[in-house]
Amino acid sequence: MIIRKVEEKDLEAVSAICMDSFLQSVASTLSDEGITTFSNIAARDAFLDRMRGDNLMLVAENNENVEGVIELKEGRHVAMLFIRPESQKSGIGRKLLISALNHAKVETVTVSASLSSVTAYENYGFERSGEIGESAGLVYQPMELKLNKPMHA
């Protein structure tokens, strides 16, 4: 398993992993608006635009197959963290998160966690930091991780 920066050739796989995982664990809890919003954010060309900006994007690769992706926005906010559904709960998310946090530019990193991913983020050491919110149909729990605290094992 290697963690490396996303390359343009990875974007189809990255988009597919995000959509597969989203459709399996999040979409059923959202409105049509939320599903459309996420589909637009997870589209290949949307990733390409963000990749050309200030967002750090890393993939976990195993035997030349992309298994997961993380996107760190402006060095302060986890914008995406998705693992191929069949590879979840195998430590890939933790490896991606640790690698991304090495590039953090702030002491407190935030995430707007889908409600189905709150427990996973709590396992990574994040804490809830506000009330559940909604934006463009996406329902989320604000969370934060203080980087001077170790992540849970």
Score class of each variant (00 low, 15 high):
residue 54 D to L: 12
residue 50 R to F: 01
residue 125 G to N: 13
residue 94 R to Y: 05
residue 44 R to S: 05
residue 28 S to P: 06
residue 36 T to P: 04
residue 122 E to T: 08
residue 50 R to N: 13
residue 127 E to V: 15
residue 111 V to G: 03
residue 39 S to M: 08
residue 80 M to W: 12
residue 16 A to S: 01
residue 31 S to H: 15
residue 120 A to E: 01
residue 131 E to A: 12
residue 6 V to W: 07
residue 13 A to G: 00
residue 48 L to Q: 13
residue 40 N to T: 11
residue 77 H to Q: 00
residue 80 M to F: 13
residue 26 V to F: 07
residue 127 E to Q: 13
residue 103 H to S: 15
residue 130 G to I: 04
residue 76 R to L: 01
residue 117 S to L: 03
residue 37 T to G: 06
residue 43 A to Q: 08
residue 93 G to K: 07
residue 90 S to P: 00
residue 72 L to C: 03
residue 61 E to R: 04
residue 131 E to L: 10
residue 101 L to P: 01
residue 69 V to L: 14
residue 83 I to F: 02
residue 16 A to N: 05
residue 92 I to K: 09
residue 100 A to W: 04
residue 88 Q to Y: 04
residue 71 E to C: 11
residue 35 I to F: 05
residue 79 A to N: 10
residue 70 I to S: 08
residue 100 A to G: 12
residue 123 N to F: 10
residue 101 L to R: 01
residue 38 F to Y: 15
residue 63 N to D: 14
residue 127 E to I: 14
residue 58 L to G: 07
residue 97 L to M: 15
residue 41 I to K: 08
residue 46 A to C: 02
residue 36 T to R: 15
residue 23 L to D: 15
residue 121 Y to A: 10
residue 112 S to N: 15
residue 84 R to K: 15
residue 126 F to I: 10
residue 74 E to H: 01
residue 69 V to I: 15
residue 57 M to H: 14
residue 38 F to P: 04
residue 115 L to E: 12
residue 96 L to G: 06
residue 114 S to K: 06
residue 130 G to R: 03
residue 57 M to R: 05
residue 88 Q to W: 02
residue 18 C to H: 02
residue 70 I to E: 02
residue 103 H to I: 08
residue 5 K to A: 13
residue 128 R to K: 15
residue 52 R to Y: 01
residue 68 G to H: 06
residue 73 K to A: 00
residue 111 V to L: 11
residue 16 A to H: 00
residue 16 A to F: 00
residue 29 T to G: 08
residue 33 E to W: 14
residue 33 E to S: 13
residue 9 K to Q: 11
residue 114 S to D: 12
residue 4 R to A: 04
residue 97 L to D: 03
residue 79 A to F: 00
residue 61 E to Q: 08
residue 125 G to A: 10
residue 126 F to L: 12
residue 105 K to W: 04
residue 47 F to L: 09
residue 118 V to C: 10
residue 64 E to P: 06
residue 86 E to C: 07
residue 64 E to Y: 05
residue 129 S to A: 15
residue 97 L to R: 11
residue 45 D to V: 06
residue 30 L to G: 06
residue 97 L to A: 05
residue 42 A to F: 13
residue 58 L to A: 04
residue 69 V to A: 05
residue 85 P to Y: 05
residue 99 S to M: 01
residue 47 F to S: 08
residue 79 A to Y: 01
residue 117 S to A: 15
residue 33 E to Q: 15
residue 99 S to D: 04
residue 112 S to V: 00
residue 15 S to I: 04
residue 38 F to L: 09
residue 22 F to I: 13
residue 120 A to C: 03
residue 84 R to Y: 11
residue 3 I to P: 01
residue 21 S to T: 08
residue 111 V to C: 06
residue 120 A to K: 06
residue 40 N to I: 13
residue 125 G to H: 12
residue 73 K to H: 04
residue 116 S to F: 08
residue 37 T to C: 13
residue 14 V to F: 07
residue 46 A to P: 00
residue 121 Y to V: 07
residue 46 A to G: 05
residue 112 S to M: 08
residue 8 E to W: 11
residue 50 R to E: 15
residue 42 A to M: 10
residue 99 S to E: 11
residue 87 S to T: 09
